[in-house]
Design a protein around this nucleic acid. Structure first.
Lengths: 218, 218
DNA sequence: CGACGCCACTTAACAATGTTAAGGAGATTT
DNA sequence: AAATCTCCTTAACATTGTTAAGTGGCGTCG
């Protein structure tokens, strides 16, 4: 018998399902009707739990952030360099875990305080290492901006598709042809669109080194 | 008499008008019908000049980039530090010049070669200064990623509105209340959302310093 | 026990959007 | 003069976020 009554939804379950669906259809395919169907519900039902679609996206971003934190208990024995590296690697990994993850994440603001403990711990570590609070804030934001910017470009160039497959969006041969007459720019093509992991590590190392140099805590 | 025949459109004029309109209505309000009305034309006419809306957005991004370049003739006597600073300051200024500028810019890929000469000149300057090509590419992308990421956050926090007015999207008092129990994080609020110009300069200085440190060309 | 009321949803509908199909007026070419 | 090309219009379509109104189940209170 179908007298089984589906348990009522809540914000968490909706965001959960939406995140799972995001990886199949991408941000542009993530319609309220599709999410609702996945939950065995009609679209307007979502408005009982969320004020509008943006509120749902905010919840999704918060959930992404929560999952990122659970993967990485901060080690109090970290040096500030290690902490910055870990935090930003973790952020990138979390964003890459979802199709259009960076776009979703950067378009939303946190509503809760789930991020507060980690932020507090990081600021504490940096100030204990000799940074002023202002320096610690600047350092964190600089590294954070780099990571977000990098992943936005990365996901724009190599979108993750439904089947987990990665497809390049740039035709290197055609680019090289257009760049004839600009030898360095042409040669840069192969470097620009290959080995994002290495490029990210390189950039992150640059940022951390710069923080040490500029704030004299290296 | 209205026998005056309007000159036919072209991609450039459409992108021009769309960019002007962008500052009045924002990316979400930038519909094809609104752009068409501004051009005294019906919406489907745009499809004669552009394959789809994304193609128009690409053209807009290219135009933004072109305007950025005309403002800044690269000085061959620049040191690599000066060049990186100028290029990324210019990029930020260009992005801030349009409502949702960073979102428009980061969502698109260049189709032309307008950016090639400047890229070539920058790579030349860096390699002449002792960088390998790979290092020059990495350095440029790191700085670039930082700038894009920074401005995306900046414009997300302080959206530019139609009348050129800037409205804050964060209630600092409410944030401080939520952050009770996390003193450093709470105190960081005022630092995080104030004086973006200074924060950007600070971050850019960090990146440039890091490039010098890591690639031994400082 | 029955009426009330709240929760969590459904059905129906709306205006707006990107996009396509078909056609048409005017200039240009043959 | 006929045909073709350019650039645009009118009409329509499916899809989207969102709102309004209604409805069935469940607990509470008289």
């Amino acid at each position: 018998m179908s007298t089984e009554r589906r348990a009522p939804l809540d914000r968490h379950r909706v965001a959960d399902t939406a995140l799972r669906l995001l990886n199949e259809v991408g941000l542009d395919g993530l319609t309220l009707r599709a999410i609702a169907k996945e939950l065995d519900v009609k679209a307007p039902a979502l408005y009982w739990h969320f004020k509008d679609k943006q509120a749902l996206l905010d919840e999704m971003a918060s959930e992404m952030y929560r999952r990122m934190l659970t993967g990485t208990e901060p080690d109090p024995a970290d040096t500030w360099q290690e902490r910055l590296l870990k935090a930003n690697r973790g952020l990138r990994t979390a964003l890459l875990g979802y199709r259009d993850g960076a776009r979703v994440f950067s378009g939303t603001r946190f509503t809760g305080i789930d991020h507060a403990p980690a932020l507090e711990a990081n600021l504490r570590l940096l100030t204990d290492a000799g940074f002023t609070l202002a320096q610690a804030v600047d350092a964190g934001r600089t590294a954070n901006s780099f990571t977000i910017g990098f992943v936005i470009e990365e996901q724009g160039m190599r979108p993750l598709h439904g089947d987990g497959e990665v497809r390049e969006r740039v035709d290197l041969g055609e680019r090289a042809r257009r760049m004839a007459g600009f030898p360095l720019a042409a040669a840069a093509g192969e470097l620009l669109f290959d080995d994002y992991d290495r490029q990210f590590e390189e950039g992150l190392a640059v940022v951390v080194a710069g923080i040490g140099t500029r704030y004299g805590t290296g």
